[in-house]
Design a protein around this nucleic acid. Structure first.
Lengths: 143, 143
DNA sequence: TTTGAATCGTTGATTTTGTCAACTATTTTT
DNA sequence: AAAAATAGTTGACAAAATCAACGATTCAAA
């Protein structure tokens, strides 16, 4: 196999695209009107104590205005609210609503199924090496 | 480590993006006016006996019109030509020119450097597992 | 053998997604 | 007190992809 080094990055990109397309489709099929990216944002917000928009922008390596629009959508769908910081009035904290928690649960169920299907034929050890490489790749790309 | 299953797809997407951005930047720095994606297309065309546009579209999972535009650009830059099939007049074969071979070599040199930098700290075996998992993931997502 | 379906390339309109630049309001630094 | 930095917002723009439609051609079926 001579995929390595030469063109693994393309296989890589193509696979990501296929995975995202698939989960976007499955989410839509389940009647969930949310993009995988937005689900991820909810996930990030939920997994931290406090989150403001500029943190998110840095985390996902996108312009703050891009994040802004996602948050706008999520807010208009009622999945989160912006809460003004009491001490620093520039900041707005992102807080997930009950509806937000609900949709996250729904998303998770769909995505779990998709993920399991995607991982068929891949052993636990292989997955472990895979994520390890992934993390290294990302670290290296940030230098 | 609890990256697994839940959010590995996002780490995944983010990493790909970073890698592509980086190689696009390096190519531009080297004065090469070609996108990583276009380099990949040249690579695909070169690695097969005969290639037509709709094959490429299927291979990279994009609409044929998207491929069309890339090919237009590559042709206008003189890196390939469209040659009419003699028996099936709907088809046009994509043939890489000398200039195309030349630019591919230049790209490869740049990308090799970037790739080596990206792969620091990753062993040959790990990379092998990584690509193996990628291939499986891709196959699974296409079902 | 003629009719209808499918394929290939092409184009234009549209959508999605992101960047960039500018601005206001606020806070921090000097 | 002035200058610089930060957070959020908005609008203009750019890149890249999708979708829908079309003409030309080939293939399949009746």
């Amino acid at each position: 196999m001579e995929v390595q080094r030469n063109s693994f990055r393309y296989l890589f990109a193509d696979t990501v695209k296929a995975l995202f397309k698939q989960s976007a489709r499955e989410l839509a099929n389940a009647g969930i009107q949310i993009l995988p990216e937005q689900h991820f944002l909810l996930h990030l917000i939920a997994s931290k104590e406090e989150t403001i928009q500029s943190d998110l922008a840095e985390m996902i390596h996108k312009d703050k205005s891009a994040v802004m629009r996602h948050i706008d959508q999520l807010e208009s769908m009622g999945y989160l609210i912006r809460v003004n910081d009491t001490t620093d009035r520039r900041k707005k904290h992102l807080v997930i609503t009950e509806a937000g928690k609900d949709i996250m649960k729904q998303c998770q169920e769909v995505i779990d199924v998709v993920t399991e299907r995607n991982l068929v034929g891949i052993t636990e050890e292989e997955l472990e090496v895979f994520t390890k490489v992934l993390i290294k790749l990302k670290q290296n790309s940030e230098k």
